[in-house]
Design a protein around this nucleic acid. Structure first.
Length: 545
RNA sequence: GCGCCCGUAGCUCAGUCAGGACAGAGCAGCGGUUUCCUAAACCGCAGGCCGGAGGUUCGAGUCCUCCCGGGCGCACCA
């Protein structure tokens, strides 16, 4: 970031001296290392503009930059201009990073605006599965990224505690309860077949006895409340184990009680966005380019999930959020289009709501099922996976792939405690540095440990300079990762660790005279970035392993 | 049939949004390295007509069209 800014400034000044216009979007790239640290092909657009050969322009630009203190090398090859930073510049960059300390990587793109991230929002019909794990990790990391970038972030869980699925759940639990009382009542067809309702049914049989012989209105309500409560506790336990905390829980029932669904419907009607057919109320979606019109109000008068979802998002808007991000599975793609359209028709700005859509998770290499279905009782609990592999590993693996790609969760790799496992590879780099500092406490003077002040000029090894250049990228990686791409942060951290481990093996830190304090300062910077990056991912950065 | 996503090395994936200088990483495979801050490591080798065909461009893994293969959706379920 620092380095790019310096290069940009130097190039634009040089262009000005040459009497050429510097384009606003000055192209800067990281070329292959043998060409230098940064390169620009700005000569090509300028060539077109000035009607001169790009090689010539690049040569002039190179000449204008010769002797610039930021660079150790400026070279024009073809039309490209290659820049190599001087060690002094890199030392200044490292010092700047160390001075920022924990603030390094933070930004103010958000400028204090408020953002809601809604994620997981799993229906309380069973425990969280491995699939929800991806969503939980993604949402939590995105929330953290935005928070780092200066947004006021609210993590929200939308709780569907009413509707047909919940009825079915209540009925399924009631069946388990009757079974516990020795009656042969089957779990309803298409109901929730999972084992997890059995112990609850037994408990209820003990405490309630034969109070609900039939599934009447009273039973329906009692079992609904009981089932939802129990399921929510299961879900919260798993979220807790995963290190995910929500600020706000919104219940569907509340939206109805507050009349929001009715209000939103009225507004849609006023704006002529709906029509009646076959006794139901439909949204005019095809008029706006969508592939079909969905039902908002069923012919029995009850609102559909979509209708409630629209009302919910209107409510989010009224609550004053500047932006909302919903993390959702790819199976909701159509729903998302419909909600976005409805909000647009209601006059809510288009950029208010964005969806981070992710594909599904398949678990490879573990006993159990690959395809999961909560209803059929075929699933692997997220909580089990966390207990087997640890929170750090599961979180890391879940965000390591870009959301829109299918995620093959490699259980065998995740189980390994060797450095083949990328989580440990990164964590171990942090641990090694911590270990060196523990040693340093014994043998090095206090002054040498004051890393923001020591003389950095002994850092001349190419690996040392490469590490500084990599550390310089961190703030930019945070910004990029916030674009629904947290996998870039994983990749980056693995890259930092991948530079550090070989360096550590080859170069001795302690007992190297003048070089020792400088190298400790460098390692301090590496540790800082690893620590900050892992913290954003919600993964621990251990001092010892 | 229609819509969205994906297709890069044996495997898992970056790189595609902003097109540029011989296509990257990790794992698996093969071969090396241990008197020294944790070897839970390091070094090296090998491995790819970037799903296919056209097109745009001085230049395409990257943009456009079509095709093939895989996933998801197309309910008065949520």
């Amino acid at each position: 970031m620092q380095l790019e800014a310096r290069a940009r400034a130097a190039i634009s000044q040089a262009l000005k001296r040459l009497g050429m216009d510097c384009p606003d979007d000055l192209p800067l790239e990281r070329p292959r290392p043998e060409f230098g640290d940064l390169s620009t092909r700005v000569a090509f657009p300028l060539a077109k503009q000035l009607g001169r050969p790009p090689q010539e322009i690049a040569r002039e630009l190179s000449a204008a930059l010769q002797g610039h203190p930021d660079f150790a090398g400026v070279e024009a090859i073809g039309g490209f201009l290659n820049l190599k930073f001087s060690a002094t510049t890199l030392h200044q960059v490292l010092r700047g990073i160390l001075r920022q300390g924990e603030a390094y990587g933070r930004g103010d793109l958000g400028q204090g605006r408020s953002l809601q991230v809604e994620f997981v929002s799993s229906n309380p019909t069973g425990p969280l599965t491995v699939g929800h794990g991806r969503q939980a990790a993604l949402g939590d990391v995105l929330a953290e990224l935005y928070s780092q970038l200066g947004w006021r972030v609210t993590r929200e869980y939308y709780l569907n505690d009413e509707g047909k699925q919940i009825d079915l759940l209540a009925r399924s639990l009631w069946a388990r309860y009757r079974q516990a009382l020795g009656e042969e009542v089957p779990v309803p067809e298409g109901g929730y077949q999972g084992d997890y309702l059995i112990p609850i049914g037994k408990e209820l049989a003990q405490s309630w006895g034969d109070r609900y012989p039939t599934f009447d209105e009273a039973a329906r309500e009692a079992f609904r409340v009981e089932a939802v409560g129990r399921m929510m506790r299961l879900i919260q336990e798993d979220l807790e184990a995963f290190g995910v905390r929500f600020d706000v829980w919104t219940r569907e029932g509340d939206l109805h009680r507050r009349g929001l669904v009715r209000e939103t419907l009225e507004e849609l009607r006023r704006r002529g966005a709906v029509y009646e057919k076959d006794g139901a109320l439909w949204l005019k979606s095809t008029e706006h380019g969508l592939s079909r019109d969905p039902v908002l109000i069923r012919s029995d008068g009850t609102p559909t999930y979509l209708m409630v979802d629209i009302a919910y998002h209107v409510e989010k808007f009224r609550r004053g959020f500047d932006r909302v991000i919903d993390v959702q599975g790819a199976d909701h793609a159509e729903e998302q289009q419909q909600v976005k359209l409805a909000l647009k028709l209601l006059g809510i700005p288009d950029d208010f709501l964005s969806y981070c859509v992710h594909q599904f998770v398949t678990l490879k290499g573990r006993e159990g099922v690959e395809r999961m279905s909560t209803r059929a009782g075929h699933f692997i609990r997220l909580g089990d996976l966390i207990r087997e592999l640890g929170r750090d590993v599961v979180r890391y693996f879940m965000v390591r792939r870009k959301p829109e790609s299918h995620l093959t969760f490699d259980y065998e790799l995740a189980k390994k405690t060797s450095m083949d496992n990328p989580v440990y590879y990164v964590q171990y780099a942090h641990t090694r540095i911590a270990s060196i500092f523990r040693e340093a406490e014994k043998s090095v003077t206090r002054g040498a440990l004051r890393v923001t002040e020591v003389n950095l000029s002994p850092l001349t090894d190419p690996d040392e300079l490469a590490l500084i250049k990599e550390l310089d990228r961190f703030p930019d990686v945070v910004v990029q990762a916030s674009g629904f791409a947290p996998h870039l942060l994983c990749e980056y951290l693995e890259g930092v660790a991948g530079l550090f481990h070989p360096y550590y093996t080859r170069v001795r830190i302690l007992g190297q005279g003048e070089a020792t304090p400088a190298r400790l300062a460098l390692l301090s910077g590496v540790k800082l970035v690893l620590n900050r990056g892992l913290a954003i991912l919600g993964v621990s950065a251990p001092e010892e392993m």
